[in-house]
Simulated scan of single mutants.
Amino acid sequence: MTVQRGLRETLSKTPVIPVISLDTASDAIPLARALAAGGLSVIEVTLRTAAALDSIRAITSEVETVEVGAGTIIEPTQLEAARRAGARFAVSPGYTNRLLDAAETSEIPLLPGVSSASEALGLIERNFQFAKFFPAESVGGVDFLSSLASPLPQLKFCPTGGITRQSAPRYLELTNVLCVGGSWMAPRNLVSARDWASITVASRAAAALASVRQRQGMNSKMTLLT
């Protein structure tokens, strides 16, 4: 059985999951604390740099208020490496059968990426309930995801890729979106400058988007009642 237990709870904790790439593990703890201070308690650290796994280890050991996931998982062996580093979940930009096979026996849940209806059907066939929609803005954005809601209600999404503070609310209004992923609250220039205060301010604005998701839930309940 596909291991996705706990993913709904994780994806529902915050309206925005910061997607961060760290060149220096020493920045991991202050960055995680700055994001958490703004109300973002779930973070995705991409495995694009040599410092990624050390960054995950640092955050999981020192910042108890943050749940950290490993992003850019493209090989089955990375699932185990992420688990050993302390990641609570894993995220991939797409999927292969080998990766899905490994996810079925992994101790951490995988959020696999899709960019088409056929790929979404492939995940449903494998009993996945949650997926990353990537690269969101480049492959149809809000309109595409909205068109999947009725024919594929079994799958809920975390769209990521090109999403901004301005476009995020439109995604969060969709009934098949649990959260969005983005990097606008912690851009590389602020991380390089170690401007943690500005990152906290931007994170606070991102966390406030929870109100959009709450409206989505209220509208869904009203639809059921009518």
Rank of each mutant, 00 (worst) to 15 (best):
A202T: 04
I43H: 03
T65G: 02
N219S: 11
P93G: 06
M218S: 15
T175R: 13
P187V: 15
F130D: 14
A90E: 05
L178R: 08
P169H: 12
E119Q: 15
R126I: 00
P76F: 04
A168D: 08
R98C: 00
K156E: 13
Q166F: 03
P30L: 07
T200N: 10
A58R: 13
D143A: 14
S55W: 06
D23G: 14
V42Y: 11
G6Y: 00
L53W: 12
A186T: 10
L99N: 11
Q214W: 09
P15V: 08
G182M: 03
V3N: 15
S92T: 02
T226I: 01
A36V: 09
W196F: 09
E67M: 10
Q154W: 03
V201R: 14
R194S: 13
Q166T: 14
T72C: 13
Y95H: 07
E9C: 01
D23A: 09
E137M: 13
G86D: 14
R5S: 15
V3G: 09
M222C: 01
T24D: 14
G6W: 00
S220T: 06
A102H: 10
A208G: 09
A34E: 03
A210F: 01
V139K: 06
L110T: 04
E125I: 01
F157K: 15
L99R: 12
P187I: 15
I74Q: 02
Q129F: 01
S116F: 01
S118P: 00
V201H: 06
V191T: 05
R170H: 12
R194E: 15
I163H: 12
S183F: 04
P30C: 09
T60G: 05
V19G: 01
I20Y: 05
T14L: 04
M1L: 10
K132I: 06
A36F: 14
R170P: 03
G69V: 07
Y171W: 03
E173D: 08
L79W: 13
V139R: 05
A52E: 12
A81S: 13
Q129I: 00
R215G: 02
R213L: 10
T200H: 01
E9M: 02
E104T: 10
P30N: 08
A36D: 08
D143E: 11
F89T: 05
E125D: 14
I43A: 07
L31C: 13
V139C: 10
D101F: 05
G69S: 09
L225P: 12
P169G: 05
V45R: 06
L172A: 06
L11T: 08
E173H: 11
S116P: 02
F144M: 15
A70H: 03
A87E: 05
E104C: 14
L53R: 02
S26H: 03
G94H: 10
V19N: 09
T10C: 06
A120W: 02
T14R: 01
A70P: 01
F130K: 00
S150M: 02
T60H: 08
L99T: 04
R170Y: 09
